[in-house]
Design a protein around this nucleic acid. Structure first.
Length: 875
RNA sequence: GCUGUCGUAGCUCAGUGGUAGAGCGCAUCCUUGGUAAGGCUGAGGUCGCGAGUUCAAUCCUCGCCGACAGCACCA
């Protein structure tokens, strides 16, 4: 018996699979009655080499794909590359390579690594988003969305890095400074392209209810992000304006003195507790007043400065300033309130203005206490009477009964809201409304390595779409990264073009699209990945979509998944796609990361694991022998130097072992700790399987059921059918770690029976091992093929049917029943299953140990749960 | 602060209203013709803490403590 040689065997089977073209998805016609299963892992950014941490995601998807294939599904399991993005430009600047060359090189490298993992991928559908054959369709989609009003331009605030001359995404701003240059970021107003995702806010929220196979956590995060709030707009007429402001406010401008101040509230029932209005520092009226009052201008500027750092916002004290004007209460024109500006009011939410009702809102209360504004309680908590109710340091925000509120007195919070809105609408002082936290999606990026926006700016015609026949608008190849800013904008010729409508000199849009756009429809392109003349055939998309199982990191729980859900809706509206319900991903699984220990040298430098050795239990640096501190478990990343390279591991231990280990130790949705000991354990287990199959009988058909197995043969089949039942259930439930535990259990049971593997039991053994080989096939596909071949299985184990557990082998005849006395286990019975409770009672009371404990006393009660437990109660 | 997830063997995790489990690690022993090893046996637990419900709670309920994640002045 030789040892298992993973290097030869894995290469052999990968070659055989490729030659048989096993993983090509069948067309709907070829598939006939077979149901379809679209299995997709979030496609990777081609950053370079992959490590074992990345492999977990693909392995999970592959396990599902292989399982579904064994179950007779027509499986689509494609792979592609999210190939546009900043790292390529950074590499271009640092290493003087073209972003395209750098990206293609990485793709080549990573594809080779993924292939060695033995993934069952249909590579004929491979795509890269930086390929003009992909992004030309994206440009066509953009133009269709523009014509429908779903893509539009507006002026928006952006983070501007004055050194790099570029716009930064929010996550590229660290403590108010550009992440690369360290220069203080400026807020600038720029014309930007947006997608009107807010047009679908309600539908995107309601759609979440139908996504039963998504994690609740993700649905909740999306719901919070969309942020629906019911409430009311309330319009407050300006009552008093100081003389020095009058002239200013009478002029034309952003906020005229005749314009009421609009406020959004979810609690119109507390309007009688209002004691002030507060406007955002950048509210138009605040800015107007700042023109005439230097102290207001100073306050606004101060807020703008503090606003950049998140840590400061968190701690920032509530501050405000009285603007000097007063407004009329909507329910009582004689009642006027002061108008303040306050740093805690957000201009981007609601109307950018609030009314302060301090008794019912903690922020308003803090503010009112600080500036001596009135606090009038208007909501009585349940069970509290009006005389004893008082507000001290804590606002009461819960539901209750309204009082001190004139016509609302006695109403519940809920009814009060309805009544207040009705009154507002009657007086034309406000209206009930719903507002959203979700904002339109800014897609402009002042970058080179992204999809060009197919728009031409003509001085005469305005915005003109590039004609379909001129698509794609390709990126120029000759670009200069030596200067900061957008290379497209300063390219000598690229942007200059004749207007397609009037022919006069015009300029191309030099912004490119956010890379989240590229990943918002790639799953649809995979359905028809080579269509030259349109994004995809709607019939093929209708066949394959929605994706049945999407697998990826929870870090994409909000943005990517929300954008993709928006995109399918936009594609439907533009006529590209037919997808009832509009949901792209019917099932979603978010897997945990792979963590690994980190090491730091005395100087605080990160050290790689192969630079460490163990000296009497203390990790030290190899060579110098200097002590090293063992850091926290961290997600594998190059910067922390705690990655395990996939190629090296596969070379040493094999792809099957890597796949097995990343699934074995933790539930898939949780993080996994990578340890050498665990990896070696997985390797030993693969060898153990190999030696177990060495005891197999001469080759025969493992699909043939053994007839009337006896003794050890029966035990073999029991172990294997039990494993089949457990693993099938756990695969359906995405519990891969439990599948692996079940395989361990089965192999342990078989190992114990190994001395009894005699020719008499050959049919049972062949059937049992045949089941086992098919059960491990999704996890260790190469080894499974080899074992299947040894057993005498015909064809590939990949194509073999999934083993069905025979219920006859799952039944147990005898059962051990514990006997408790007063809740503590004192004895046990070995009994036939399904015995009558009265017989069990007699058996239990007859037990010596029970007799001893009872010492002659009669039991007060005996609780009998058949086949489970007997509890004798004496007290 | 809000929301959510999680506390079970040294480590990573299963599990169930009714006998506390697996893998790895550890210890003892055996094999050295399955050998960059393999195998037998074993030790190891207040199931985070406290109360309640129950014949019986690791599991259900409530409170507390701790860890992690997302959002974060959302009116």
């Amino acid at each position: 018996m030789s040892r298992y040689n993973h290097r030869e065997t894995e290469a052999k089977w990968r070659k055989a699979w490729a030659e048989a073209d096993l993983f090509r998805a069948r067309t709907p016609e070829e598939a006939g009655d077979s149901p379809k299963a679209y299995i997709l892992e979030m496609f990777p950014y081609p950053s370079g080499r992959i490590h074992v941490g990345h492999s977990r995601n693909y392995t999970m998807g592959d396990v599902v794909a292989r399982y579904k294939r064994a179950r007779g599904f027509n499986v689509l399991h494609p792979m592609g590359w999210d190939a546009f993005g900043l790292p390529a430009e950074n590499a271009a600047m640092e290493r003087k390579v073209h972003p395209g060359a750098w990206t293609l090189n990485n793709i080549r490298e990573m594809k080779g690594q993924l292939e060695k993992l033995g993934l069952s991928i249909d590579w004929s559908r491979e795509l890269a988003t930086c390929d003009p054959s992909y992004y030309r369709h994206q440009q066509a989609i953009f133009l269709a969305m523009w014509r429908k009003g779903l893509a539009f331009r507006k002026s928006a605030k952006v983070n501007w890095d004055p050194v790099d001359n570029t716009v930064l995404a929010n996550e590229q701003v660290v403590d108010g400074r550009g992440w690369r240059t360290g220069a203080p970021v400026e807020i600038r107003e720029l014309e930007q392209w947006f997608f009107r995702i807010t047009a679908f806010a309600g539908d995107l929220l309601e759609g979440l209810d139908g996504l039963g196979r998504w994690p609740d956590k993700v649905r909740l995060m999306q719901a919070n992000w969309i942020g629906k709030s019911r409430g009311a707009f309330v319009w407050w007429d300006i009552a008093e304006v100081p003389d020095f402001l009058k002239a200013g406010l009478e002029n034309e401008g952003p906020h005229h003195a005749r314009d009421p101040v609009e406020v959004f509230t979810t609690r119109p029932d507390t309007l009688f507790g209002a004691s002030f209005l507060a406007l955002a520092p950048d509210h138009p009226l605040t800015r107007r007043i700042a023109e005439f009052r230097p102290e207001v201008a100073e306050f606004v500027a101060e807020c703008a400065r503090a606003g950049t750092s998140e840590a400061e916002i968190e701690k920032a004290e509530k501050k405000g300033m009285d603007l000097g004007i007063r407004v009329r209460h909507p329910f009582d024109p004689a009642w006027t309130l002061p108008v303040w500006t306050a740093n805690f009011v957000l201009s981007t939410y609601g109307s950018g203005a609030i009314f302060g009702s301090p008794a019912g809102d903690q922020r308003d209360l803090d503010f009112a206490r600080k500036y001596g504004l009135p606090v009038v309680p208007v909501v009585l908590p349940p069970g509290v009477d009006a005389d004893s109710h008082a507000i001290h340091d804590e606002a009461f925000t819960g539901p209750g009964t309204l009082y001190q509120s004139r016509f609302l007195d006695g109403l519940s919070t809920e009814d009060g809201i309805i009544a207040a809105i009705a009154e507002l609408e009657k007086r034309r002082a406000g209206e009930g409304t719903v507002i959203w936290r979700l904002r339109d999606w800014g897609v402009s990026r002042q970058r080179y390595w992204g999809c060009p926006i197919p728009i031409i700016h003509c001085p005469k015609c305005g915005l003109v779409g590039v004609p379909e026949t001129d698509l794609p608008v390709e990126l120029p190849g000759d670009v200069d990264f030596s200067a900061p800013g957008n290379p497209l904008a300063r390219h000598p010729t690229w942007k200059h073009v004749a207007c397609p409508q009037c022919g006069s000199a015009a300029e191309r849009e030099t912004d490119t699209l956010d890379t989240f756009v590229d990943s918002s429809w790639y799953f649809a392109r995979f359905c028809d990945a080579t269509a030259p003349d349109r994004p995809f055939d709607p019939k093929l998309a209708a066949y394959w979509l929605p994706v049945d199982q999407y697998v990826g990191g929870v870090e994409h729980a909000v943005l990517h998944l929300l954008y993709a859900r928006f995109f399918t809706r936009a594609l439907i509206e533009c006529g590209f796609l037919d997808l009832p319900g509009g949901e792209p991903f019917a099932g979603l699984f978010t897997q945990g990361m792979v963590n690994h220990v980190t090491y730091k040298s005395g100087e605080g430098k990160w050290l790689a694991p192969d630079e460490i050795e163990d000296r009497e239990g203390q990790p030290v640096e190899i060579g110098s022998g200097r002590p090293v501190t063992r850091g926290a478990l961290e997600k594998m990343s190059k910067s922390k130097r705690n990655v395990i390279d996939l190629d090296a591991f596969v070379q040493d231990f094999g792809a099957d072992v890597a796949r097995w280990f990343v699934l074995s130790d933790s539930p898939p949705e949780r993080d996994l700790e990578w340890t050498d000991a665990g990896a070696e354990g997985a390797w030993r287990f693969s060898q153990r399987l190999w030696t177990l199959f060495a005891a197999a009988p001469p080759p025969g058909d493992p699909l043939m059921a053994a007839v009337q197995p006896q003794g050890p043969g029966l035990e073999i089949l029991r172990a294997c059918h039990r494993a089949a039942a457990a693993i099938t259930g756990d695969l359906e439930g995405f519990r891969f770690n439990r599948c692996i535990a079940a395989v361990h259990e089965c192999v342990n049971a078989l190992k114990k029976l190994e001395p009894l593997f005699t020719p008499d039991h050959a049919p049972a053994l062949r059937e049992g091992l045949g089941i086992l080989a098919r059960l491990i096939a999704p996890f260790m596909p190469h080894l499974a093929e080899e074992l299947w071949e040894k057993l005498g299985g015909t064809g590939f184990v990949v194509n073999a049917p999934w083993p069905e557990a025979n219920p006859d082998f799952l039944r147990e005849d005898m059962v051990v029943i514990p006997v408790q006395i007063d809740g503590r286990r004192r004895a046990e019975l070995n009994a036939q299953k399904g015995l009558d409770p009265q017989i069990l009672r007699a058996m239990a009371l007859a037990e010596d140990k029970v007799q001893a404990f009872l010492a002659g006393a009669a039991p007060k009660d005996v609780i009998i749960v058949p086949d489970r437990i007997i509890n004798i109660v004496t007290k």
